[in-house]
Simulated assay, not measured.
Amino acid sequence: MGDRAWVGTWRPHHPRGPIMAQFTSPGPKYSIQGTTGYMKHNPTKRKAPAYTFKGAKSLLHEACSPGPCYYVKPSMTRSGKETAPAYTMCGRPKVKTEVTPGPSDYSPEKSKKHVYRTAPAHTMSFRTSSFRVDSSPGPGAYTVPGVMGPNTVDKTASPCYSMKWKSKLGRFDEDLHQTPGPAAYKKVDVDVYKKRAPKYSMGTRTKATGNVINPGPGHYYPGKITLTKPCAPVVTFGIRHSEYTMPLIVDVC
């Protein structure tokens, strides 16, 4: 420090700590955001409206007019439709009659107290009925809250304990006859813990419904059964009819 010359009123000296000038910069890999375009625009700068450019429209057809298939009325001009005034005829509208108040329903003489200042008006009425004599409670009807016990109002109550008689359970004079005996318990059904057998109910004989005559064994012909056994062809013989017998003609008319 002693060998350093004075520079005006200041003498150079060693820095107490590192300064930013002693460090190198990161180089050109850091760049400032641009101010043109809308991609990665500098947020600190004002951005103007952005417009997009689009390609040209496709070519139209050679004939873009509607053609003679559309008929334009002669009354239609370039400034609108030009026709004479047209009126429509319709029925007379219905008028709904409402019942409104007439002049006699109003009382204009009663409007003075609302428009002009008037003196106070009092009404005369009958004397009201006297009130009943109320039976208010006397001094003896009130009681001063107690200061002893748990139910105190303005005092702090100490813990309260209740005294109970001694239980007879387990004592020498306990009555054991009040306990249930073996006969007080119901016998468990065997079907609860074993496989239950089928049960049948026995009922009385039912009565016949009405006088029904059923066929007996003599009403059947077991010798004529041909449904379950093979049978030979059976031919029946009838009476020969005459060829000259007149048929039965019924007069339809």
Rank of each mutant, 00 (worst) to 15 (best):
M1D: 13
G2V: 06
D3I: 10
T9G: 11
R11E: 02
H13K: 09
H13Y: 10
H13Q: 15
I19V: 11
M20E: 11
Q22H: 07
T35R: 03
T36S: 14
T36D: 10
M39T: 14
K40A: 09
N42M: 02
P43M: 05
T44W: 14
R46P: 09
K47F: 05
K47Q: 13
K47V: 02
P49T: 11
A50P: 00
Y51N: 01
Y51G: 02
T52V: 07
T52E: 13
F53L: 08
A56Q: 10
A56S: 13
K57M: 04
L59Y: 07
L60H: 14
L60N: 11
H61D: 15
E62C: 01
S65M: 06
P66T: 15
P66A: 06
Y70E: 04
Y71H: 15
K73N: 13
P74R: 01
P74V: 00
M76Y: 12
T77P: 01
S79L: 05
G80Y: 02
K81P: 01
E82V: 13
P85Y: 01
P85I: 01
G91Q: 06
K94S: 14
K94L: 11
K94T: 12
V95R: 11
K96A: 12
T97N: 03
V99N: 07
G102F: 03
D105W: 09
Y106T: 10
P108I: 14
E109R: 12
K112I: 15
K113A: 13
Y116P: 00
R117G: 14
R117V: 09
T118G: 03
T123L: 00
T128G: 14
V133L: 08
G138P: 00
P139L: 08
P139R: 10
V144G: 01
V153W: 07
A157H: 05
S158R: 13
C160N: 08
C160G: 11
S162K: 13
K164C: 03
W165V: 10
K166E: 03
K166M: 06
K166D: 11
K168E: 08
L176C: 04
Q178D: 06
P182I: 02
D189G: 09
D189A: 12
D191E: 05
V192A: 12
V192W: 03
K195N: 09
R196F: 02
P198N: 14
Y200G: 01
G203Y: 03
R205E: 10
T206G: 15
T209L: 14
G210A: 07
N214P: 03
G216Q: 03
P217K: 10
H219S: 15
Y220E: 07
G223R: 03
I225D: 15
T226Y: 07
T226K: 14
K229R: 14
P230W: 06
C231G: 05
A232T: 12
A232R: 06
P233A: 09
V234S: 11
T236K: 15
T236E: 08
F237E: 08
L248P: 01
I249T: 12
V252D: 08
